[in-house]
């Protein structure tokens, strides 16, 4: 008797399936999208230069904790929250302000309920698709073993909310250059960035739970009635969480690229400042 017969005709093994559709396209696109972003973000973080132009600050480098004014395309020293680049910084690493802050949005996205689905399927193959054989491994523990850390997603959310405030401040500053109000393409790019990030962040499943989902009774008092309204609003955003996740991911990388190209002088920023 073959395994095939024993299992009711089901084939067994990694990626084994009787499905005839192109189930692998989704995981492949996820690998390309997340992989492409990871490569670009890592490269951009290691540059330590060309992250600032006029009033534009790349979101990969915000907030600017320390500044190395000697780097080309760097921000003026007065933009740094904590001052000049620290002397204790290991010389083998480039002096890049991005290193101080990128962990926060990274952890938020890595523990996000949507991205978990995306990378469990695409990178870990548990499973690669629905009714498709998973990567063979030891005894499956899901999110009860090492991955129990995923339960701290709400703390990454708190940090992400702070970042939206900071990036919103950067977006407002992008409309002022040398004290003169104005608008440029970069201003609009940097304005859209926190808006998209807010749509992603405030549609988060943890946020949905915290604002009202944890209640069993939405009509018991005035506060719970108000939270019900909030919960419904977050639910509407949450229904498109995947789309917001991808659009905001793309736009944050594009924002960095735009500021970088303008700062390098490779493209000209159309603006009212001339």
């Amino acid at each position: 008797m073959s395994d095939l017969a024993r299992a009711g005709g089901h084939v067994i093994g990694f990626a084994a399936t009787a499905r005839r559709d192109r189930w692998w396209i989704g995981p492949l696109l996820t690998v390309l999208g997340l992989g492409g972003f990871a490569v670009y973000a890592t490269w951009a973080a290691f540059q330590g230069s060309y992250y600032f132009h006029g009033a534009y600050l790349s979101p990969f480098y915000s907030p600017l904790l320390f500044v190395n004014p000697a780097a080309p395309g760097s921000a003026p020293l007065e933009h740094a929250w904590l001052g000049r680049w620290p002397s204790w910084w290991p010389s083998i690493l480039p002096a890049s302000p991005a290193f101080f802050i990128m962990a926060f949005p990274l952890v938020f996205r890595a523990t996000c309920y949507y991205y978990r689905k995306a990378y469990y399927r695409s990178f870990f193959g548990t499973p690669p698709g629905c009714a498709v054989g998973p990567v063979p491994g030891g005894r499956y523990r899901g999110e009860t073993g090492l991955l129990i850390v995923q339960n701290l997603h709400r703390y990454a959310l708190y940090a992400a909310i702070v970042f939206i405030g900071i990036l919103s401040y950067d977006a407002v500053r992008a409309f002022f250059r040398d004290g003169r109000p104005g608008v440029g393409v970069g201003s609009m790019v940097l304005l859209l960035n926190p808006m998209l990030l807010a749509a992603y962040t405030f549609g988060c499943h943890s946020w949905r739970h915290l604002v009202g989902g944890r209640l069993d009774c939405f009509s018991c008092d005035r506060q719970s009635a108000m939270r019900h309204g909030l919960w419904r609003g977050v639910t509407a955003l949450n229904a498109h969480h995947m789309q917001w996740a991808w659009v905001s991911l793309f736009w944050v990388a594009f924002s960095d690229l735009y500021v970088r190209l303008v700062s390098m002088g490779l493209i000209r920023d159309l603006s009212t400042w001339g």
Partner: peptide, 24 residues
């Protein structure tokens, strides 16, 4: 009941004939 064993890959939601948002 092992909630931690679900790694939210959402296949349950995809196949539900009643379109219940099982995962979300």
């Amino acid at each position: 009941f092992g909630s931690g064993f679900c790694n939210i890959t959402r296949c349950c939601t995809e196949v539900c004939p009643e379109h219940i948002e099982i995962t979300d």
